[in-house]
Design a protein around this nucleic acid. Structure first.
Lengths: 365, 365
DNA sequence: TTGTATGCGTTATCAT
DNA sequence: ATGATAACGCATACAA
């Protein structure tokens, strides 16, 4: 309100405008905005006008000249799923703090949609891309699809050669969970493996572990840890204790139904997500099981969002994964070499696990 | 593998390249790609080359010429929160199906961060912006901040004049929930109002309803419906039955503690989210309350992600809200006028509500 | 219907 | 250290 310049905050200014207003050439201005040194007095003049106008460079024009735009892409299978939205939070936070913007697309859980998103993205203005593939082994896009875009794969492994992958140590997670249940005196441990679209039956899971594309599934990695812990403890593997299912609440119910129907005397459960575990537990409860006494449960999850049960879980640090993915991509964009990053996991003991107190008659549950 | 052109799929092509390869001028090409009519034979030639090269227009150059980029912005308070990530899913789906891209930023629940995001966004290449403000009444950004960008506000009301808002009918939701609990014979209905940062105490809530910025809070709207239903039923309002708190699990626990501590003989609860309700319920349960018999609970939520309790809830259709926001923004971008859209809500009766069976001695709980 | 020429905001080259 | 100018890929006014 103090003085009424003819400079309006509504307008969008170009370098040329600023040059005119400040009496400094566009070339010098460009250099200034790109961090090069200018004379002290020049800087003063520029700063004044920039303050008045609120000028900021056009990222479109910048990109047209072949420079970086500060925009990175993020493709997730389903942004409404907390697992991915927490990673996205990490990506966006880290990106923002580095002055980057995030172009985000959700594949809605479908490879078909994912392809469309990738196509849209690769013709876009991105400096680089963080790609979380839909969890199906078939029909993975070819690396050429990404057209020389600096690329980081998150969550999943072994998707592309020579592309950095950021993932959790699933095998260690499966191992820790299983070992802990064994330490609690539980030897009938159910493993509920979740897939977006299950590639095999419970009978086939052990063999499928060695299949060509098996390395891309988180359930498989965790399953390997499960096997390792069993072997270490001298407990024979029983495929009846495996349920192969998907990622929904109903999937958990179905898995529990299967485990109960096979008379496995299951006294421990390892599930991939909280939603699935909720389904499992509700089914077991309706059969009279008590958690954690009769059935101890461990999940893989980030415990940020507290649920009804405080699940004992393998902590997955999802926000952190997003941040790491951005940093890795940054390195790639700057031309540095970037390697795969395996994020460590820890077991958080909460309320869904306890020592096994054997009943008089295990058969009659 | 059939014939070996000198056209490589790796290269990025410009209009000029396509002009050279097809023998059509850049102007005609430009017109063609913008949907104008060209001669049949010309179209054939263009199509052939486009197929071979995989050419797509540079959105940066397009934007520089003042045309639309197909990019819209989405600012959410916290993408890791399921409430917002489900809206984001709707936004991204609808945007994708319209050939648009979504630049997405998370404010991490802080007005300060939100300001930075807005600043980044408004100097960006957006055709328009969907803005979900952080839930604090203070320090709302000025409309000028958005620099003539077509703008749609989602979730919240009364943020800007002459800007379309897309929101749920919170008052109806509060009314439906309260009325239903009353129909179940419950007259001591606790209202757990959640805020990102509570602007008043439970004693002050009734008065705060008329405050300047109160219209921006979803809790307030729902509270109005609560009051209306009470009045209709001739039940006097009791501020002791109100708990003003935040959005976490712990907030729910605290709210329950307050309600219990005030000896309110609460037999119904209306909570804003599932997380909060979970906290509430766990606290009441530890005091011996049974859900739904002793305490019936209704929440506001989208029931997509099934929890342990199948909560009776006011269904919020969040994905749909995202879609509607995009369509509204589309209209705005096309120069059409767009009005506020109030999305209808319905009550979904599930397992956390039942008729009240009075105890012998209500005092001794 | 099609082509030519100009300008959008920026960076890079070259000269000063 | 700074300024003038060409070039980036596209859209459009204008000419053909």
């Amino acid at each position: 309100m103090d003085n009424d310049n003819q400079i309006s905050i509504e307008t969008v200014y170009s370098l040329k405008d600023i040059a005119q207003l400040s009496g400094v050439s566009v070339a010098t201005l460009s250099r200034y905005f790109n961090g090069q040194k200018v004379r002290r007095s020049t800087e003063e003049k520029i700063k004044e006008i920039v303050d008045k106008t609120g000028y900021t460079p056009s990222i479109a024009a910048r990109f047209m000249r072949g420079r970086s735009t500060g925009v990175i892409g993020l493709i997730v299978p389903d942004i409404s799923h907390p697992f991915f939205s927490m990673i996205a939070e990490g990506v966006m936070n880290e990106a923002r703090d580095n002055g980057r913007l995030v172009l985000c697309g959700s594949s809605s859980g479908s490879r078909e949609v994912e392809k469309r998103v990738i196509r849209q993205f690769s013709q876009s203005i991105l400096d680089g891309l963080i790609y979380i593939p839909v969890g199906e082994a078939e029909d993975i896009p070819a690396i050429e699809t990404f057209r020389n875009l600096p690329l980081v794969v998150a969550v999943r492994l072994n998707i592309f050669k020579n592309v950095p992958h950021v993932y959790h140590d699933g095998e260690k997670g499966g191992y820790l969970a299983t070992k802990y249940l064994i330490q609690l005196g539980r030897t009938r441990i159910g493993f509920v493996a979740s897939f977006w679209s299950p590639p095999c039956t419970n009978e086939e899971l052990l063999e499928y572990t060695n299949a060509h594309l098996a390395g891309t599934f988180s359930s498989i990695h965790r399953f390997k840890g499960y096997l390792k812990a069993l072997e270490e403890a001298g407990i024979p593997y029983d495929p009846k204790l495996v349920a192969v299912t998907t990622y929904s609440h109903q999937a958990g119910v179905d898995a529990a139904t299967a485990l109960i129907g096979r008379f496995t005397n299951c006294n421990g459960i390892i599930a991939m997500t909280q939603i699935v575990a909720n389904g499992c537990v509700s089914r077991f409860k309706s059969q009279g099981y008590k958690v954690p006494e009769d059935l101890s449960v461990i999940i893989f999850d980030s415990n940020k969002q507290k649920a009804d049960y405080a699940y004992t879980n393998v902590e997955l640090s999802l926000v952190e994964m997003g941040q790491i993915a951005v940093r890795t991509l940054d390195n790639l964009i700057k031309g540095k070499k970037a390697n795969d990053i395996c994020i460590d996991v820890t077991l958080q003991v909460r309320e869904t696990t306890s020592f096994l107190h054997p009943r008089e008659n295990d058969e009659t549950i």
